Simulated assay, not measured.
Amino acid sequence: NENAVIGAAGNPNTVGLEFSNNPNNGGEGDRGKTPEDKVIVFTYKLTVNKVDKDNKPLTGAEFSLFKKVKVDGKEELQLVEVKKILSTNAEGTVFGFTGLDDGTYVLRETKTPDGYNSIEDQTFTISAKHDENSDDPKLTALTGDVASGSIINLGVMLEKGELSTDVVNNKGSVLPS
Rank of each mutant, 00 (worst) to 15 (best):
A90E: 08
A90M: 07
A90H: 04
E91R: 06
E91M: 09
T93I: 14
G96L: 12
F97D: 02
F97R: 02
F97S: 04
T98K: 14
G99F: 09
L100P: 10
L100W: 09
D101E: 11
D101C: 04
D101L: 10
D102P: 02
T104I: 12
T104G: 02
Y105K: 00
Y105D: 00
Y105L: 00
V106M: 02
V106G: 00
R108P: 00
R108A: 13
R108K: 13
R108N: 08
E109L: 11
T110V: 11
K111Q: 10
T112S: 04
T112D: 05
G115M: 05
G115C: 08
G115I: 11
Y116F: 15
S118A: 15
S118V: 13
I119K: 10
E120Q: 10
E120K: 13
D121N: 15
D121Y: 09
D121L: 07
D121P: 08
Q122S: 14
T123Q: 11
T123C: 02
T123R: 10
F124E: 06
F124H: 10
F124W: 10
T125W: 09
I126T: 01
I126Q: 01
I126W: 00
S127W: 00
A128T: 08
K129L: 09
D131V: 14
N133T: 15
D136A: 15
P137T: 05
P137A: 07
K138C: 04
K138L: 12
T140K: 01
T140M: 02
A141G: 06
A141V: 06
A141R: 12
L142I: 04
G144Q: 04
G144I: 02
D145P: 00
D145F: 01
A147G: 07
A147H: 08
S148L: 09
S148D: 14
S148E: 13
G149W: 10
G149D: 12
G149F: 10
S150F: 06
S150K: 04
S150P: 11
S150I: 05
I151E: 10
I151W: 00
N153K: 12
N153A: 13
N153W: 05
L154V: 08
L154A: 08
L154M: 08
V156P: 00
V156R: 03
M157W: 00
M157A: 12
M157G: 05
M157H: 06
L158F: 14
L158T: 04
E159T: 14
K160P: 01
K160A: 11
G161A: 08
L163G: 07
S164R: 11
T165W: 08
T165H: 07
V167K: 01
V167H: 03
V168S: 03
